[in-house]
């Protein structure tokens, strides 16, 4: 049987398209730029170290890109992702689901969350250094995806298979730097995500890989 005689009944997907400049702000209801906030009327919240990921999304002119829709996805402090295969996992945090989103302004964005734990090795998957997956939608692009790591995790970063797949100078561009902050506040990490041009951030192809 030749390959050409094999038919498929798979449906052809739509093409991803730009979100354009006019994604309604009011669709960002409920504040998901702060995953540490206490739930209404409760004095308990997510486990873990509170952090702020402060980022600048930059274009090829070095200008901050505003009106971009940025989505975050991460494990909880114990390194557990809230995915269906982890349903009922004893280390799931009932106060943390790991999905955040915001729309950028002309200022750096601030995503307040808890520092993700390292993902344990399981089911043929390597252990992963603590990281936050960042997905960006804006006018001019369809969708960009990358992962951001932390500079105070050098041992875990050195073992991470995603970082290891990149040449050294690109690896550095995914590592957020902790900056000096008052000891009683959340730790602040800074990252520049460069969409195009000198210092361009490595983005990942999550459709074909």
């Amino acid at each position: 049987m030749s390959e050409a005689s094999v038919t498929t009944n798979r449906l052809a997907p739509l093409a991803e398209d730009t979100v354009g400049p006019y994604y309604p702000y009011s669709f960002i209801d409920g504040d998901r730029s702060d995953l540490t906030r206490l739930h209404y009327g409760l004095s308990v919240g997510p486990q873990g170290q509170q952090i702020i990921l402060r980022g600048r999304l930059l274009d090829s002119d070095g200008a901050i890109v505003d009106d971009a829709l940025v989505e975050f996805w991460q494990a909880n402090a114990a390194g557990i992702l809230r995915t269906p295969d982890n349903d009922g996992h004893p280390l799931l945090d009932p106060f943390f689901d790991g999905f955040g989103r915001l729309i950028t302004t002309t200022e750096p964005f601030a995503f307040r969350t808890i520092k993700p734990g390292a993902l344990p090795a399981e089911g043929g998957m390597a252990a992963r250094a603590p990281h936050i997956t960042v997905t960006m939608f804006s006018d001019g692009i369809t969708r960009l995806v990358t992962q951001i790591f932390f500079d105070d995790e050098p041992e875990a970063n050195a073992q991470d298979p995603l970082l290891a797949s990149l040449p050294g100078e690109l690896r550095e561009r995914l590592i957020a730097r902790r900056i000096e902050t008052p000891a009683d506040g959340p730790a602040v990490y800074e990252i520049a995500i460069v969409m195009r041009g000198p210092g361009e951030t490595p983005f990942f192809d999550d459709l074909s890989s």
Binding site: E71, W73, A75, L81, R82, T83, P84, G98, F99, L119, G124, M125, A126, R128, H131, T133, T135, V145, Q147, D160, P161, L162, A164, S165, L166, P202, F203, F204, D205, D206, S208, S209
Partner: peptide
């Protein structure tokens, strides 16, 4: 070009 995701790192790219 976009970079391929190594098999061992792929699980955490899919938000739920």
């Amino acid at each position: 070009r976009l970079h391929l995701i190594p098999e061992a790192a792929r699980r955490s790219f899919v938000p739920w």
